[in-house]
Design a protein around this nucleic acid. Structure first.
Lengths: 325, 325
DNA sequence: CTGTTAGCGCCTTCAT
DNA sequence: ATGAAGGCGCTAACAG
């Protein structure tokens, strides 16, 4: 690996001039050309270790997710990566497996300049502060009670509420929400919004054991087979939506004749099902953009108080709701 | 951030003894305890920049994917991350957007010790060699013509062939494969295997514009509406499988009465659809394990010739094929 | 605008 | 098993 010294040998310039060139500080035109020629000939690339040792920055941000195979989180991260990389910032991705503190510690060991995390469990705020040191943290999709940090989420209550409104606007008084485990922050919010707004009638919350297609299918299949079969349904995330849809289809039931349906996050799905499904959809690109923006600001030295960014969901109309029989 | 010097101040030991302790070299028991106490008190963590500067290794592997929102690739990467992290190796993830060479260059700039890439376009082997330098490269899921590198893929021809066999075993002589663009290496292989083996009869290849649920749905909806409606179908990836399934359901057709069906990668889906679908499934965990293993070996200094790991797919039987009318 | 100099924190001979 | 010393490649004063 060539170094400044090699460039110095070819150009006769001092190390500091060469450094200035690479840091976009003014350099005489002739020297600039000489450096460019030399480094092209050498295939030179600056050594990030040495640079980091001096500057104390890696231009890498750590990403901490519960699991890496969650499609929703990864699609946000795709947007975050794109926005950060435009500024030359890379992402070091790690599965946290419900242990935020350990995850943060390990990322810090690898010298990340900041951390974006989707938290799961509760965390002791003090422990968090200690392990974080001065590394900026942006919490994505979910919050942690008692922790003061930048936060980018959607308005989950409003999302649940809107779903309930759609259904009640068509006259449904007996409504069901298929939601994931109560341990998931977003699910609590969506369920709460749904209950609070649909609460004038008869509201049932079906809780699944986890957020998978299979779990959604199972819970829905059981509900459909029960004595009081749901007639108006809201699914609180994409996997549950798909699972419920399959359960309904397999049971030989029709939407909306037998059951009215509001799904979540499946805009693409909504467009190709018959009938089109009503959907609550999350603004993935905005979530990504705001998260990246916040992080870049912190990296640039913004020390203003923690922000709480709350984005609205979009309601995509369909033909999957009809008045109750 | 505390350094060895701080530990030295607390323990009176030399920097070299402290270094030895942290590098698992023999240190007298009393000293070991002193160092442990001091570093705990200080909240000490070794500075990876300084370490990298000396050792020339970052303990980070770069991951280069066409896009980060591809569920299949990310599920492999989830396994890779898990295996690498067990060895203390992190992953720096980047979307390559069809430009492997630039991607590799940028990852090298961030000092990755190795690169795992899912390639898309062709690449000039020499350019690749140059930009790689001595960084080990493992190609995942797809190969590049003319490039000699470690490679972990499935046997795509065999996968396509097996699908064709299933259908012909039930007596189908007119079979259709729904595959993605010919530009995708895996799709070419699956189509080839399907054609070669199903070739005794009447084989049609439906090519979609991209690998999405919507594209699969569209292509399938058109085919179902055509004069010669398919009666035996193989879908060459998960998104196409889901899209085709929705198209079939929406068209009011039944599996397998109207159309026999072999899907791809949707084992979970297969279990909850009615009837159960025949599926070709990729060994995601094995792909991840072999990839990680290969990379770890290279990081450990293995300089043996490039390996070509080819894994078999699994055939999951269902009730979605019946003899033709 | 350019050059000289002094580290950043750690690992690694080399003696002891 | 320990200690002293040098340097990895780069940046950031500072002087010119």
């Amino acid at each position: 690996m060539p170094t400044y010294k090699d460039i110095q040998r070819l150009t006769g310039l001092s190390l500091s001039t060469i450094s200035k060139y690479f840091n976009d500080l003014p350099v005489r035109e002739a020297n600039r050309l000489a450096i460019e020629e030399a480094s092209a000939a050498l295939g030179f690339r600056r050594n990030a270790f040495a640079r980091g040792l001096r500057t104390k920055r890696s231009r890498v941000v750590g990403i901490l997710l519960p699991e890496l195979d969650n499609a929703f989180h990864m699609s946000i991260i795709a947007g975050v990566e794109s926005a950060l990389w435009k500024e030359g910032v890379g992402i070091l991705v790690r599965a946290a497996h419900d242990d935020l503190v350990t995850g943060i510690g390990s990322l810090r060991e690898q010298m990340v300049d900041g951390i974006i995390a989707v938290p799961t469990n509760a965390v002791d705020p003090e422990t968090l502060t200690t392990v974080l040191g001065d590394v900026p943290l942006v919490l994505l999709d979910r919050r942690i009670d008692g922790v003061v940090a930048d936060t980018v989420t959607i308005d989950n209550e409003a999302a649940g509420a809107r779903a309930a409104e759609c259904l009640s606007a068509f006259g449904h008084r007996s409504v069901v929400a298929l939601v994931g485990p109560d341990s998931v922050w977003t699910m609590r919010g969506r369920a709460r919004g749904f209950v609070d707004t649909g609460g004038h009638g008869d509201v049932t919350i079906l809780t699944t054991t986890n957020l998978t297609v299979a779990a959604g299918h199972l819970a829905m299949a059981q509900a459909l087979a029960s004595r009081r079969r749901p007639t108006a349904l809201f699914c609180a995330n994409y996997e549950l939506t798909l699972g419920a849809l399959l359960a309904i289809t397999n049971a030989g039931l029709s939407i909306p004749e037998d059951i009215s349906f509001v799904g979540f996050d499946g805009e693409e799905l909504a467009e190709i099902t018959k009938p089109r499904l009503w959907m609550i959809v999350q603004p993935i690109e905005d979530l990504a953009a705001r998260t990246a923006e916040l992080m870049l600001a912190r990296l640039a030295g913004d020390t203003s108080p923690a922000r709480k960014v709350v984005l609205p969901t979009r309601l995509v109309p369909g033909d999957s709701i009809s008045p109750p029989a």
